[in-house]
Amino acid sequence: MSHAVDLLVRRARQAVVVIEAIKLLESDLSAGCDTVWVVEAPEDQQISRLMHKRDLTEAAARQRIAAQSPQSLKLQAAKVVIHNSGSFEGTWEQVQNAWSKIPRPEEPLLRAPVTARPGQLVVRRGRPQDAEEIARFITRVTHGRKRMTRADVMAAFGEKAYLLIARDGQLAGVAGWQVENLVTRVDELYFEPGLPLDEAIPALMETVETASAELQSEASLLFLAPYLARHVGAWRAVGYKPQTVQGLGVRAWQEAALESMPRGASLWFKRLREDRVLRPL
Rank of each mutant, 00 (worst) to 15 (best):
M1W: 06
M1Q: 06
V5T: 05
V5I: 05
V5Q: 07
L7N: 03
R10V: 02
R13A: 09
V16E: 02
E20S: 06
I22G: 02
I22T: 06
L25S: 01
E26Y: 00
D28P: 00
T35P: 00
T35F: 00
V39F: 02
E40S: 10
A41M: 06
P42G: 08
E43M: 05
D44T: 09
I47C: 01
S48K: 07
R49S: 02
K53A: 07
R54E: 12
A60D: 15
A60T: 09
A61D: 01
R62V: 05
Q63M: 08
Q63A: 15
I65W: 01
A67H: 01
Q68H: 00
L75E: 15
A77S: 10
A77V: 06
A78E: 07
K79I: 05
V81M: 01
I82R: 05
I82Q: 04
N84Y: 04
N84Q: 04
G86F: 03
E89K: 06
E89C: 07
G90N: 07
T91S: 11
T91W: 06
W92E: 12
E93Y: 01
V95P: 07
A98L: 08
R104G: 08
R104K: 13
P105C: 05
E106H: 10
P108K: 06
L109G: 05
L110Y: 04
P113R: 14
T115V: 12
T115R: 13
G119C: 00
Q120C: 03
V122F: 02
R125L: 11
G126R: 08
A131D: 09
I134R: 14
I134C: 13
I134S: 11
V141P: 08
T142N: 04
H143C: 07
G144H: 10
R145W: 10
M148V: 02
R150I: 02
A151V: 03
A151Y: 06
A151W: 04
V153S: 14
V153I: 14
A155K: 11
A156W: 03
A156T: 11
F157N: 13
G158M: 06
K160A: 13
L164S: 09
I165M: 12
A166F: 07
D168S: 00
Q170L: 10
G176I: 02
N181K: 10
V183I: 11
R185T: 15
R185P: 01
R185D: 09
D187E: 10
D187Q: 08
D187T: 12
E188T: 13
Y190D: 09
L195F: 07
P196V: 05
L197D: 03
I201C: 02
P202A: 04
M205T: 15
E206D: 12
V208Q: 00
A211K: 13
A213G: 03
E214A: 15
E218Q: 01
E218D: 11
S220I: 12
S220K: 09
S220C: 13
L221V: 15
L222D: 05
G233D: 13
G233V: 15
W235N: 12
R236G: 12
R236H: 15
R236S: 15
G239T: 03
K241W: 14
Q243I: 09
T244V: 05
G247K: 13
L248V: 12
G249V: 03
V250C: 14
A252S: 14
Q254R: 03
Q254H: 14
A256K: 14
R263D: 15
L267G: 10
W268A: 14
R271Q: 15
R273A: 15
V277R: 06
L278F: 11
L281G: 05
